[in-house]
Design a protein around this nucleic acid. Structure first.
Lengths: 197, 197
DNA sequence: GTGCAAGTTGAACGAGTGTTCAATAGGAAA
DNA sequence: TTTCCTATTGAACACTCGTTCAACTTGCAC
């Protein structure tokens, strides 16, 4: 592949089929859970023949693993540092982002939930997930450390852990349809934890 | 069935087969997720012939529904009132129970997670789950109301919602192996919310 | 043009799925 | 004993699953 040449059939949304297959898998996983993700269903959703799914992803578990990595990468970006802002603003933005409109969609939350459930059932996925969780915790602790330089690394990590508990609760509870006001108050609670004196 | 007569084969743990089938389904669901729960696997785990599973549960989804109800009943008991204690103690006990050794086991948490994921994939399960969630919220709000009679029903409900966010977060994060100290601090946080002036 | 490699297709295979059902066992009632 | 209903079994059915593979198309290098 990537010989540097341009695909001739690149009209409209017909980008490369591999991404469309991955996207289809994410969509099906979010909507119907793992039991809705069959190779045939993925092929159908992506508008592609069955064989092509196994061409780009040798296994079904390779496909799911790719989906997991894709979501993990997305999660990690939430706590990435942004040099254009003050440390306090970076932290506050990161904390508010988790209740932003891009995150608090059914599609994303449902996807996250199904991936967590998957990680409980498969040890390989569990390891990937745990590593991503650790990196997220590190990222959040770093943001806290920048905004509150007087805190020790251990204290930052503790606050990050406490915040993640509330954030995970928000994600999960949002799926059950808890009212928006409770989400707002929970966001405020994460800020209290982060900025506490 | 229940003619009032005693089963002759009631030696040891050989109680009625229907409960053993349900128990097997719960065990498999907790360990391997929904894709590990096949009628055959349930029969094997329960030490029973395949046909018997469909004899007691006409459908696979009836079986899963029974599992859901069983867990929901268990959850609701967490916020049941206990006339032998003062309202404050009842509330405090309920809040601490969610981090108790019976609850914070991998088996229970994993089961809960898989049921949540299942509810996202199947609308019937979602309705059952949402109803159970509401009853749990009501129970918790009632405990708060008893302990803090000066609060309005609306305020109780709000506090209950905020507490549930943290509790759900604890459950979920406990599965990812967050340290026990963070769980302890989160419990304290739920108590702060409940008893705040 | 010919050659070649990557991309793409769908049929085929064996394994596993949920469900049905005729057959059997067991114990209480007659 | 015979009768009858419940409990229990496992074979059988039609179906879906993940995976493999031979065939075919496409586009670039020569």
């Amino acid at each position: 592949m990537d010989t540097g040449t341009v695909n001739t059939r690149e009209q409209g949304e017909q980008v490369d089929r591999q991404s469309r297959i991955l996207e289809a898998a994410l969509e099906l996983l979010s909507r119907h859970g793992i039991s809705g993700v069959s190779m045939r269903a993925v092929a159908r959703e992506a508008g592609v023949a069955l064989g092509l799914v196994n061409y780009y992803y040798e296994d079904k578990s390779s496909l799911i693993r790719a989906a997991l990595h894709s979501v993990d990468k997305h999660d990690l970006a939430l706590v990435a540092q942004d040099p254009g802002l003050s440390p306090e603003e970076q932290l506050r933005n990161a904390l508010r982002r988790v209740a932003g409109p891009e995150l608090l969609t059914t599609r994303y939350l449902s996807l996250r939930l199904h991936l967590w459930a998957l990680a409980r059932a498969d040890e390989d996925f569990a390891l990937i997930n745990a590593a991503a969780f650790d990196r997220y915790l590190d990222g959040l602790a770093a943001l806290i450390g920048n905004a509150r330089p007087e805190l020790s690394a251990k204290e930052c990590r503790e606050r990050a852990a406490d915040i993640v508990v509330v954030q995970n609760g928000m994600w999960l509870t949002a799926l059950l349809g808890v009212d928006k006001e409770s989400i707002r108050r929970s966001i405020a609670r994460t800020e209290e934890i982060a900025f506490a004196a």
